[in-house]
Design a protein around this nucleic acid. Structure first.
Lengths: 149, 149
DNA sequence: GTTTGTCTTCGCGTGCACTCCAATTCCTAA
DNA sequence: TTAGGAATTGGAGTGCACGCGAAGACAAAC
């Protein structure tokens, strides 16, 4: 430990950032190499020194990725960041477009969950009817179930 | 067309099933080959003949996959189907476990969407303050933004 | 009876998002 | 001064879920 022993203490080493963001060290390096994250400042020992602000950005990126944003869009976002305050509009555009995808995904999930619930209810019903526990009655072909609707 | 010309008409060709399930023909064949779907009956010409019931099952499998079920679990489910009515309990178990995952995913999505909304609001505010459109004022370093709370 | 078109099987190829590795560098502790 | 341990780099490998193309079979159309 004590990555920031001889320095300002306000900078974070990669190990701590990994722990705080849930990303692995490998992923952090890979994001940076591939341009998904702006270049991180290095100390005199060539090691990465993250700021609190950058950890915040990583948390945002984690959420974007987890909600299905492809890496090339994260890259695009990172480029816009590097271009400074003149790109706020474009960043907003990118984020709102992604927001729409999340909403669509939520609707899809809801519908899929509902269908699954119907199926679960159906199985509960079947079991209550005694159609389980190796007392297989009537027909026992390959497609004995997956009922109607 | 006319896959079921010389036969009972109640069977469906792979093309129609692909269209009705949203899966490609490749995926349908692959599911079957890899055991994610029970063996499909063949006609005299060796081609697949699906039943309406199987289309229903495919729709369920599509929902399971779309909601993140790994293929080995779909395989497991398919095996249970082949074992007939004695496995209703195990199928129910598998489906309810997956249901829990969907609920967790929904909660995660909600939280991520909320964070994104905060971010979007932040950018709206920034732009209203005039911090856009190449009139970059104050500081224009690499990390000029992504503010904490 | 040849063409056209759709299907078959088998197996290699692809895209994405990491993940791991080897060789090296640097700081700290003994 | 030496050893240990954590971090660095570039590049190769992995797992998942398909995608795709070749070679051949068969039915209906011409």
């Amino acid at each position: 430990m004590a990555v920031n022993a001889g320095e300002t203490e306000q900078y974070l080493g990669i190990a701590e950032v990994a722990e705080r963001t849930g990303l692995t060290q490998n992923t952090l390096r890979w994001y940076e190499r591939e341009g998904m994250f702006p270049r991180v400042l290095r100390g005199t020992d060539r090691r990465r020194r993250y700021t609190e602000r950058q950890v915040g950005l990583l948390r945002l990126l984690t959420r974007l990725r987890r909600t299905g944003m492809p890496t090339r869009e994260m890259r695009r976002f990172s480029e816009l960041l590097a271009d400074g305050a003149t790109t706020h509009g474009q960043r907003l555009e990118l984020l709102t477009a992604h927001r729409e995808r999340i909403l669509a995904r939520q609707a899809e999930l809801r519908a899929d969950l509902e269908a699954l619930d119907d199926k679960v209810a159906h199985y509960h019903w079947l079991i209550e009817q005694g159609l389980d526990c190796s007392g297989a009655p009537i027909n026992a072909e390959t497609d004995t179930d997956n009922g109607g609707q």
